Simulated scan of single mutants.
Amino acid sequence: MFNASLYGLTVLIWGTTWIAIKYQVEGVAPELSVAYRFALAAAVVFVWALVARQRLRFALRTHVLLMAMGACMFCFNFYFFYLAANHLTSGLLAVVFSTASVMNIINGRLLLGRRSTPRTLLGAALGIAGVAALFWPEVRAFDLGDAGVAGLLLSLLGTLCFSLGNMTSVRAQAEGLPILACNAWGMAYGALIMFALAAVVGAPLTFDTGFPYVASLLYLAIFGSVLAFGAYLTLLGRIGADRAAYATVLFPIVALAISTVFEDYRWTTEALAGVALVLTGNILVLTRQRPRPGQAAPTS
């Protein structure tokens, strides 16, 4: 599949998951909602990997890497954001999560020794500024009180976990490990960790059989996890973590477009300016600068 198709699929699906997530945080402990989501997703991906005849048996050292990937990307990333949702609005959560593009640049340099071009750095900065402009009323009204600090720290931790998960996926793909098998084991480990956490904190083992919870769980597991993560992590290996993470900047626009239709969202001048900044950053990050005559093309 072409990179543009993978990118578009990731943005489109993750842009719609914010609506589904709101049905997961009421009535069921967040650690259990995350565990249910990735247990179901892992089962689907294991079957997919078997059908695709990808190897699923790995050495202990590889399983340690896949467990780290699961803990970061398919576990605590979502757990911290589910907790942060009790303190911050969805708009502020989107603003914080968009910093994944910058965290990937920093972590890619520190952990993988990969440098990003000034063009990518500028694009990431424009993207975050654009997301902040999109949600400017919520940013302006942010209260740095106890609840605000707690929500900000939790969402930053969630974003950092996502970025570290990106680094482990890049490492796994660099070692030639198949993506489907990595995702299957990573999701399984993430679900097991969340079930263990639920037991440690004494969360009641409950399940909401209501249609909104079950339907949103299925959507998040199949589309938000199996398909979107498969597309995103494939893209990660092809174009690099710094450029692929720009999807976290672009999908809030999709979320707002959906809100316009279903929730009567009203566009403001700041929001329109934010869209312009995000799209400009998108062009800078995802297109390569033409080298001058005699100059080598940039690698990132």
Rank of each mutant, 00 (worst) to 15 (best):
L111C: 02
I105F: 04
G27N: 06
V95E: 01
G8W: 14
F223V: 00
G176Q: 13
P204K: 03
T287C: 11
F251S: 09
A271S: 15
R109K: 10
I239H: 04
G151V: 10
W18S: 05
R119A: 00
L110I: 14
L154P: 08
T168G: 01
I19A: 14
S101C: 08
N183T: 08
A141G: 10
A49G: 00
F97M: 08
L93A: 04
A49N: 08
R171L: 15
T99G: 06
T62N: 13
T99N: 12
G151A: 02
L217Q: 14
L277V: 00
L233S: 03
G294H: 04
I179P: 09
E26T: 13
P291G: 00
G240N: 05
L220V: 02
V261L: 15
Q54F: 03
T159D: 01
A271N: 04
L284Q: 06
C75T: 03
S259K: 13
A84T: 05
P137C: 02
V201C: 05
Q54P: 05
V201I: 13
G8D: 06
H63K: 06
L284C: 02
R114N: 07
A199I: 11
P30S: 02
G130D: 09
M103H: 14
E263A: 15
I222F: 15
D242K: 00
V25L: 15
G190M: 10
L235T: 01
V131F: 02
F81A: 10
A49M: 01
L152E: 05
L233Y: 14
A188Q: 06
L12G: 07
L56N: 03
A199C: 14
